[in-house]
C-alpha cells in the first residue's frame, strides 16, 4: 500500500490517551486512522490523521516519556497546525471542547492569523491560517528581524 503519511510525525504522550483521542477529534477535527488496544483495553499505538499528516497519540511508555500533567505543565515541544480554513472558527471549536486559549486569534506580521491553546493534559498547540500575502522585505521592515528563507 502506498503510504500517504507525511514523513515527519509527532508522537504526543498522554496519561489518558483514549480521552485524548476523543478530545482531539472534538477540538481539532483530527480523525483516528489507527488504534491498537491490548486485551486490557490499553492503547498500544494510535494515529490520528489531519489532511495528509499524522500525529501519534500514546501513553507514558517509558520513564522518560511524560505528559505535561506529570511534569508540572512543562512542554518541551509543541505541535503546530496549519489550516487553510477559518482560524477563528477553529479557535471557537477548540474553546467549546474545553481548550484553554492562551493567546486569542491575532494576525501576525508575517501574514498568518494564529492562536495558541492548551489541551486538558497541558500540551500547547498553535494554529495558523495565512490571511495576508506578505513579502520578506515587508516582514523585515515591520519586525526588525533579519529573515532567511521565505515561503
Amino acid at each position: 500500500m502506498a503510504d500517504w503519511r507525511a514523513p515527519l510525525m509527532s508522537a504526543v504522550c498522554y496519561l489518558d490517551p483514549k480521552a485524548a483521542l476523543t478530545w482531539l477529534e472534538r477540538a481539532f477535527g483530527f480523525e483516528i486512522s489507527m488504534l491498537i488496544e491490548d486485551d486490557a483495553g490499553n492503547v498500544a499505538h494510535s494515529e490520528m490523521r489531519f489532511g495528509n499528516a499524522v500525529v501519534m497519540i500514546g501513553n507514558e511508555w517509558t520513564a522518560d516519556h511524560k505528559s505535561p500533567r506529570s511534569i508540572g505543565g512543562k512542554n518541551t515541544q509543541t505541535v503546530h497546525i496549519q489550516i487553510t480554513t477559518d482560524v477563528d472558527a477553529h479557535c471557537e471549536r477548540a474553546r467549546a471542547a474545553g481548550a484553554e486559549i492562551l493567546a486569542e486569534p491575532e494576525t501576525q506580521f508575517y501574514g498568518d492569523r494564529t492562536y495558541r491553546c492548551r489541551d486538558p493534559e497541558g500540551h500547547m498547540w498553535t494554529v495558523a491560517q495565512t490571511v495576508e500575502a506578505v513579502t520578506r522585505e515587508q516582514a523585515e521592515t515591520t519586525s526588525g528581524l533579519k529573515i532567511t528563507g521565505w515561503m
Binding site: E31, I32, S33, M34, L35, I36, E37, D38, D39, A40, G41
Partner: peptide, 11 residues
C-alpha cells in the same frame, strides 16, 4: 476484555 485493532480511512 479483548484486544482491538482499529483502522479508518476516507474513500
Amino acid at each position: 476484555m479483548t484486544s482491538k485493532v482499529y483502522v479508518a480511512l476516507r474513500v
